[in-house]
């Protein structure tokens, strides 16, 4: 039987996730399209959430819950969070991974997994 490594393992495990979390968080904090949603957010808590999210989209050990995603973003939806912002986050994540030397097909897989949370994030 063929053993397929998860995306998480192919990307390099925990160390790669940590680096991707830092780099993508820096990007969203400085991107004019989305940075206002992160105003006043506690950095440590945000990094912990970002890490849980990336571990999930990389297929690593996680306890993703659509309900948490809905509750966690409900206040942002009220402030105008919409599809264009989700597009930006997925774009910045792709850019981060590309800068880290991740191959395009893997980035596509990550983007597809991130895409699967869109409706939960936007409360639909």
């Amino acid at each position: 039987m063929m053993f397929m490594p998860t995306l998480y393992e192919q990307l390099g495990g925990q160390a790669a996730v940590n680096l991707a979390v830092d780099n993508s968080y820096r990007k969203v904090l400085t991107d004019d399209r989305v940075k206002s949603f992160f105003d006043g957010v506690d950095m440590d808590q945000q990094i912990a959430k970002q890490k849980a999210f990336l571990t999930m989209v990389f297929g690593g050990p996680n306890n993703y819950s659509g309900l948490d995603m809905r509750q966690g973003h409900a206040h942002l939806v009220k402030r105008g969070l919409n599809d264009s912002h989700v597009d930006t986050i997925i774009e910045l994540l792709g850019k981060t991974l590309s800068e880290l030397g991740v191959a395009e097909p893997l980035i596509q897989q990550v983007a597809a997994l991130a895409e699967s949370t869109r409706n939960d994030v936007l409360g639909r």
């Binding site: 979390v21 968080y25 820096r26 400085t30 440590d44 990094i47």
Partner: peptide, 9 residues
């Protein structure tokens, strides 16, 4: 410091 490139950890 984080935005200036220091790792969060």
């Amino acid at each position: 410091l984080f935005l200036a490139g220091a790792g969060s950890r």
